[in-house]
Computed example of a mutant assay.
Amino acid sequence: MRRGLILGACLGVCASAQVSPTRLVTAYPAFLARLDGNTLLWKDDTSMPLTAGRVFTSPADRLDHPDLRELLRQPYPACTPLHAPAYAQDPGRARPAVFFGKMYGSSPAAVKAKLVVVNWFGQPLMFSRVNGAADALRAVEHELTAQPALRKYLTPSAGTYLWRVVAGSTRQSAHSWGIAIDLNTRYSAYWEWSGYREFQHGIPYANRVPQAVVWAFERHGFVWGGRWYHSDTMHFEYRPELSGC
């Protein structure tokens, strides 16, 4: 079943195209019970508002202090042809740390307790077992094993788990929760390597990662940093609330 949504061309808040909050419950059934109006109910009898009522002052503020609505504001175009994203289109780049920390762990010790080894083409990588993330990465490896010509883009991996913030920010990296993998940096492009400032207009788009690699990850619930205006083409993270084909 196709779960990815086609990304609209608007540059601001696209309310009509926003991903339904019910996708959170569908994507994370082990933790989430249901929605009750503007409130997300967890299976441990706690709750979390979809919106914090914050008035965002800038695009960067949206990333620094995202709520759950911000997480879902930009639909992710899973399994669509690769192209340069429009200005400020970064679907999946907003990560409410309280939400992800509650599932995967809010400290290095808590995250590490949930990590398992995944064999990535002979390279042992640590990945979270929570929400089937490690199983999804194994499924990607199994699928891409049948295409040896793609191996150079995939290995060696530049890493998975590492508790840290995103460089130059206070935002928790998805690597902190053990749900992200970076591929071979030799074939990668990262927006900041060009010397641009965040949200500066005209950041150039470059990509050498084949569509077959991207779609394999997306079929198993990963989002790709190459779908972002602030492109990070080595980066994939497990986000089944947004991706899947």
Score class of each variant (00 low, 15 high):
Lys114Cys: 11
Gly92Ile: 00
Ala9Asn: 10
Pro85Val: 03
Asp36Ile: 01
Ala109Tyr: 05
Arg34Ile: 03
Pro91Thr: 04
Ser169Phe: 13
Tyr28Leu: 05
Leu183Trp: 00
Pro204Cys: 10
Phe56Ala: 03
Asp36Met: 06
Glu70Leu: 07
Ala97Trp: 06
Ile203Arg: 03
Tyr153Gln: 04
Ser58Pro: 10
Met126His: 15
Thr22Ile: 12
Asn207Arg: 15
Gly105Gln: 01
Ala52Lys: 15
His220Leu: 04
Leu137Lys: 02
Leu68Lys: 01
Met48Ser: 11
Glu192Gln: 10
Asn184Thr: 06
Leu82Ser: 14
Glu241Leu: 04
Phe100His: 04
Leu68Asn: 01
Ser107Asn: 10
Leu24Thr: 00
Phe199Gln: 07
Phe99Met: 01
Lys43Phe: 10
Ala94Asn: 02
Pro91Leu: 00
Met126Val: 13
Ala60Ile: 13
Leu5Cys: 11
Ala97Cys: 08
Glu198Lys: 02
Arg129His: 09
Leu162Arg: 09
Ser243Gly: 08
Trp193Tyr: 11
Ala136Leu: 05
Glu141Gly: 12
Met48Gly: 04
Arg54Gln: 09
Ala180Ser: 13
Ser20Tyr: 06
Ala88His: 09
Glu241Trp: 00
Asp135Leu: 13
Ala139Asp: 10
Ala206Val: 04
Ala206Tyr: 05
Ile179Met: 12
Trp224Phe: 11
Ala189Val: 07
Gln200Ile: 11
Pro124Arg: 02
Leu71Ser: 02
Arg239Glu: 07
Ala27Asp: 05
Arg138Ala: 15
Gly195Asp: 12
Thr145Cys: 12
Gly132Ala: 09
Leu125Met: 13
His201Cys: 07
Arg227Gln: 13
Gly101Lys: 07
Trp42Ser: 11
Thr46Ser: 15
Met103His: 09
Ala189Trp: 03
Thr26Leu: 15
Glu141Tyr: 05
Thr22Leu: 14
Arg73Trp: 04
Cys245Ala: 15
Leu24Glu: 01
Ala167His: 14
Gly202Glu: 14
Arg219Trp: 05
Phe127Ser: 01
Ser243Ala: 15
Arg129Gly: 11
Gln123Ile: 10
Asp64Met: 08
Ser169Gln: 15
Gly92Gln: 00
Gly92Val: 01
Pro240Arg: 01
His235Met: 10
Ala133Asn: 05
Val13Asp: 13
Ser243Pro: 13
Glu218Lys: 01
Gln123Trp: 15
His83Arg: 14
Ile179Gln: 00
Arg34Gln: 06
Ala52Asp: 13
Ser176Ile: 02
Pro85Asp: 07
Cys79Asp: 08
Gln172Ser: 12
Ala15Glu: 14
Ala113His: 08
Val25Pro: 11
His201Gln: 14
Ala17Asp: 10
Ser231Pro: 06
Leu40Ser: 02
Phe127Val: 09
Thr185Gly: 08
Pro75Thr: 00
Arg3Glu: 09
Val117His: 12
Arg239Trp: 03
Ala136Asp: 04
Ser157Thr: 08
Tyr187Ala: 07
Gly12Thr: 12
Ala180Ile: 03
Ser47Ile: 04
Ser16Tyr: 08
Trp228Ile: 02
His230Ser: 10
